[in-house]
Design a protein around this nucleic acid. Sequence first.
DNA 1: TCTCTAAAGCGGACATTAAC
DNA 2: GTTAATGTCCGCTTTAGAGA
Length: 726
Amino acid sequence: MVIPDEDVRPIWCPLLSNSLVDHIVLGRRGELGVLLVPSKKGFVPDKRGLKCDLWAARNIRQIDYESCKICGCLNHKDFRFCQFCGDRGEDSGEVSIDDQDLKSYNAKKRILYLENMLNNKTYDKKKVSLKKDLESFLIGRAKNLTSATPEDIRLFLIDRDMKGKTKIHDLCCPFLGDKKFKDCSCPCRLASGTVSSLASQLKAIFDSFGRKGEWTESGLIKFGNPVSSTIVKRYLEAVKLEQAVAHVPIVQAKPMFLDKLKKISVYITEQLNDHMLKPGKRFVYLRDRAFFTLQFFAGDRASDLGKCLAQEVKKLTDSEALLFRHTVGKTLGNGKINEFVISPVSDKLICPVENLNQYVSGAEEMDIDLSLAPQGEEELLARRLASPCEKNPSNAQRLEPPLGSLSIQCMDMPLSSDSPPWVCTPPRVPSPKVGVAGQTKLVVDTSLDVTSIIETKQKVQEYNTETILGINSTEPNNRIYNTESNTTIYNTESNTRIYNTESILEINTEECNTESKQEINNELMQEMQTEPIQEVKTKPKSLYRSQEIKDTNISILQTDQSDGEIESKIRLTLEFDEPSKTKKAKLESVCSSSFKMLPSHVHLNIASGSKQSNNIKPVKVNGSSKNKINFIGDKVDIRNIKHSSDSSNYRKIRPRKLIQGKTENEETDLNLVNQEETRNQVRNLENTDSVNHPFMMQGSFHQGDDRFRNNSGKQMCSKFINSHSL
DNA sequence: TCTCTAAAGCGGACATTAAC
DNA sequence: GTTAATGTCCGCTTTAGAGA
């Protein structure tokens, strides 16, 4: 038996010592070459040295064991305290001195264990390293963490800045904007994002050191976090500006689309068809194919999926779908879990369910039991599913080249999925009686009769509440299947997910052919054809929220935003080589070209959601003096109407930041609004496409918005659109 | 293994709506 | 009128992965 002699000796150490007949020292702490460690070249002598003394014992005496009455685990026959469940057996309950020591020991051991759990995280190790650097820098200035000032921090950042690798070309440099060229005399600095990140880490270091709060400096009194000071903030701002001026390009992640997933799957399947393939490689291929396809359709983060254990995956009894339940991950834990259902897709090649099943059955054929950890490994084999994203070095094998032959470059990131699909949202169903419908909700239905919805307020209410999903009325842990759309809603206490795998966008709605609908359409078409496009008023940029794109109808686009804002908003490629276009034409071009892969019945709502809140709702005269509407002629005076409740059922004045002494609303909103005219305008612009097209894509979303699952980001958006445009 | 970097998570502030 | 839930923006903080 080989025993490590650690700083904190285990509780069973005395017991073990008594049972040993003979022992020798194999190596002392720090000694090199005592152990052989695995490497690509086989087992090689350890170059790091032992972390503690290593002993070898032999001739262990027979120890008499006794089972614990509570948990059944084996303990020494004279045990007074079960090593496993803590039961004290038939003890009287009096706390002896020994028990106190034992408690103290156990507490100490547990604290050490918990501390290690935190300190072993990569980020924490990095902070410790940074802290050391900072301290040694401060020593050079005769300072320490207690006495460091904002100026010290700025100098430290400048010191680090000199070690950067990002070329900041001078404006006169011919290589301005060229990231690759590094032979000119322009300086290399840290990228602005890195400096920000560095500052955040420094701030966290000072916070944990006890120097929290804003930096305050008044005469000799100086306290707070020096990183929170204006000096450091201005430094960061200046660095960002400098690099923006120097045209430092920001490299963005390369998304992986469905076509690439298919190529990977084709490649792996071809390899698997080779009967000469060695079992080890076969296992890797099976595992990686399952991983790639699962990650693509689950929208799961690679690292989260990599941490998935076999027992976290359940096969639903009444369908082929799989239920995943992640409890550990980047944002999981702490009471937060990620639970979702993966349904099969028709294309077996990329079907995540099919591929996972093949992985499991293939492993079984190779006598690899996925439910048991292999000898010598602590983790279940299923954990090794993570190989494509595991950090290097990893004991898990990687997918081997030549992926390049299939146009799959190794630089492609694994499917980054800190991101959600763009979900289908229901139309905001309008009604001549109740006006603009409420907030959009997630809706899955195969046949929505828009006509009937429009007709009655009751229908509108039904439509706009979650009752249509049956979520509220459904008992927890019931599944609601919508077989036609191949979409599963899984309702649990912790969260409700709508999981769409394949055809959520292929939902069709009955064509509306009633008179009222037709009338609206006719009016609208007429207006669109005859009404001149309003001239865009030029207003200061700061008056507008960045997400606002005025007007919701793509066919008569107009905007107050600059080209850059439009581009950043839509985040899709513009045709820069084309002759310059007007803003309207450019936006039209973007909308028509970039989204052309969308199915024809999908309407992309590029207007912001907040647009709705700017609309005038129909006036409800309910006699309340507080809600009394002041008419001036045929117009409504909205100046004194405050937002309080729904009873003030018309325009609200939204307090905003002050701009030159006026609120944004005062500056931009009309005080007098033609009630009927505006309502019609709203109805037409806001809802027409919704009526014509049953579903629209939500154009903006919040990162981390739970409606889009835990994560939201552009990678998944692009992926999702791509997969559903087939 | 460490450094650098891009990407994304998180939560506050503010705004809005539905339901009661 | 109150409350819970939803929607949007933004700054701060944390994380993962590439590459030296």
